[in-house]
């Protein structure tokens, strides 16, 4: 179904160009707005030519929102989530594909069902667990009456507590499970010939050896693809960092953008907000550009 005619080519090129234009236009407006001063940016209509204050606005946004440490936080958070997901998903898929054990299908479907439960749906229980990781166990002890028994017997009140709020662990750990990633690996592992596993067994490699020496190196492109997607996803997270980091020291760049949005009765300094947005957009863009070569290969086809 590959048809080649000059008119068709022209039309498809035109359509692609229109698509590109409509995708890039908002970014252009952000960049232009970030280059004007307060008066020009609030003119109606806003001029569509760049002004001379771009660098000043960037510096102002950086300082006002304290973006330096926030971007470091964001990088730690996003990289932690991405690496965690890449590793946990590989390990989970390894277990699902290569081992036969009781309850394997239950595990498989449990993972599958989490696809239908994104973070926003389970935010309250997830927050409760992050606030005290041991709370489910505490609940078990309370319900089974062990707490009561121990109190009666010894007078000691059992109260398990391990809070993760306002820490990198709390930001990262609850987000590193990923069904999507697990399935990406699963599909890849299923394409590998069984003989490879058998050859490794004949060579004397155990399961862990096989995982690290054969499976992980072979899934490099998958890891790059998954890592990139998940880095961008984590970078853009708003709700979770907002809930978990009440202490400003652990805030991420994306939640910090809120600080730059003009208040209802404040100065309408949108040029600063736009400049801040540009800064915060930059790191994931760099990651995508840097990883693009690997990323596409991982999604398109398995390396033979």
């Amino acid at each position: 179904m590959v048809e080649r005619s000059p008119i068709l080519n022209l039309i498809s090129q035109l359509l692609l160009f229109l698509g590109l234009l409509s995708a890039l236009l908002p970014f252009a407006i952000i960049a232009i707005a970030a280059s004007h001063d307060l008066r020009t940016v609030n003119e109606v209509p806003m001029p569509l030519t760049p002004g001379p204050y771009f660098w000043d606005n960037i510096v102002e946004a950086w300082n006002r929102a304290d973006l330096g440490p926030k971007i470091v936080n964001s990088i730690v958070f996003a990289a932690g989530v991405a690496l965690g997901k890449v590793f946990i998903a590989a390990l989970t898929a390894f277990s699902i594909v290569y081992f036969r054990y009781w309850g394997k299908m239950v595990v498989f479907w449990a993972i599958f069902i989490t696809l239908m439960l994104p973070l926003e749906v389970r935010i309250v229980p997830t927050y409760a667990v992050a606030a005290n990781v041991l709370s489910p166990y505490q609940a078990l002890l309370d319900i089974s009456g062990i707490t009561w028994l121990v109190r009666q017997a010894t007078g000691i009140e059992i109260a398990l507590k391990w809070g993760l709020l306002n820490s990198y662990t709390g930001l990262i750990l609850p987000l590193i499970a990923t069904a999507t990633g697990t399935f990406l690996y699963r599909q890849f592992f299923l394409t590998l010939p069984d003989e490879l596993t058998e050859a490794a067994r004949m060579d004397g490699a155990g399961a862990i050896r096989f995982f690290f020496d054969v499976l992980l190196p072979l899934s490099r492109t998958n890891m790059a693809a998954l890592g990139t997607i998940m880095f961008v996803w984590a970078w853009n997270q708003y709700l979770w960092p907002l809930l978990v980091t009440t202490d400003a020291a652990h805030g991420t760049a994306v939640t910090q953008l809120k600080e730059l949005i003009p208040q209802t009765n404040g100065t309408p300094d949108w040029h600063i907000a736009m400049a801040g947005t540009l800064i915060v957009m930059l790191p994931p863009l760099v990651v995508v550009i840097f990883m693009q070569r690997w990323f596409v290969r991982g999604l398109v086809a398995a390396e033979k």
Partner: peptide
Amino acid sequence: EPRERGCAMVFQNYALYPHMTVAENIGYA
């Protein structure tokens, strides 16, 4: 286990580790 039996096997589709060089493949055991 296979490794304890002292057998070595040659497979129909070779089953070489694609990410290792020939030397690494031969020397993996």
